[in-house]
Simulated assay, not measured.
Amino acid sequence: MNNAIETMAELIGNQLKLVDLSHNLEVGMPSCLTHARFGRIQHEAIEYGDAFTHAALIMSEHTGTHMDAPNHHIPGSDYTIEKVPSERLFGRGAIIDASHLGKNECLPVEFIQAWEKEHGEIRAKDFVLFRFGWDKKWDVQPNCKPYEHDWPGLGREASEYLKDKGVSVVGTDALALDTGDAVVCPAHDILLGADIFILEALDKLDTLPPFCYIVALPLKVKDGSGAPTRVIALVE
């Protein structure tokens, strides 16, 4: 076991580059308009003369880079975030650049199929992450409004296609996987309804190749509908 761990550490250190795909949690960061905004209250600080520094955090389960569990949107579901199996938290990532889309535009399923013809087939258990370029709009108040409105996303056909592929996770660098003007939420309906988890508000997808490996570790919130998540890409 020790040799295996040492080999893994050497591989990560020498042959793989680690890319953090998560945004910082900070006051004034973007938020879904119906969700609590992130807050941080300083309780102790060494510079105040205290022995330790610590602060209280106030936030939605869906703050910043986060994972949605099925019970976030599916009536009657008891599949909460702490029940996500460990083996579902890592896998091969297919990184699809769809940054050509305009405001509130749905990605056609034909675009995904054309991407597969060029780069390779999406397989069961993959993480499929869509780069819309929306992370470039990420900012803190009063400059976070462009990020919080009008993002592109997935519609019913693309979501059904990925469900039929049996993927494990679908993600976006926008605030949500459905489009910014969505009245109904077909991507959430279809994917969460099939126990396919959703990652939202990813960062730096433009630094990744078409395929790499992804590790996504949500906070283990009991009965949680989602949780802030540290997402790491392992790139050869």
Rank of each mutant, 00 (worst) to 15 (best):
P85S: 05
E87C: 12
K163T: 10
D173E: 00
Y147E: 03
R123S: 13
V109I: 13
G102P: 07
R92Q: 08
E105T: 03
H100D: 14
H149P: 01
P146H: 04
G166T: 07
K136Q: 11
F90V: 12
W134C: 11
C106L: 15
F111W: 11
E82A: 10
W138P: 05
W138Q: 09
E157T: 11
P152S: 03
V167I: 10
E105S: 02
P146K: 02
L107I: 08
D164K: 14
D178E: 08
H149A: 10
H119R: 12
E116A: 09
L162N: 07
I190R: 08
A114V: 12
I95D: 07
I81L: 03
G133Q: 09
S99D: 06
Q141P: 06
W138L: 03
K137N: 11
L129Q: 09
P142W: 00
V84F: 06
V140N: 09
K117F: 05
V170D: 09
V183Y: 15
A114S: 10
W138G: 03
D181C: 10
K137A: 06
R123M: 14
K83M: 07
F127E: 03
D135A: 02
L107C: 01
H188I: 04
P108E: 05
F111K: 13
S86C: 13
C106M: 15
P108F: 06
Q113L: 13
N104F: 10
H100K: 14
K163I: 10
I190N: 06
V128M: 12
C106E: 13
W151D: 13
A174T: 00
G91T: 12
I96A: 11
S159I: 03
I95P: 08
L101C: 09
E160K: 12
P142I: 07
D150H: 14
H149R: 14
A94C: 15
G171Q: 01
K137T: 04
G166V: 10
V184I: 15
L89D: 11
S159E: 01
K83F: 05
E82C: 11
C185N: 07
A124I: 12
E157M: 13
V170R: 01
W138A: 00
W115A: 05
L154H: 05
G171S: 00
F111P: 01
D126P: 12
V84K: 14
F90Q: 07
V84T: 10
L107P: 15
P152Y: 08
K165E: 07
S86R: 15
E148G: 02
N143V: 00
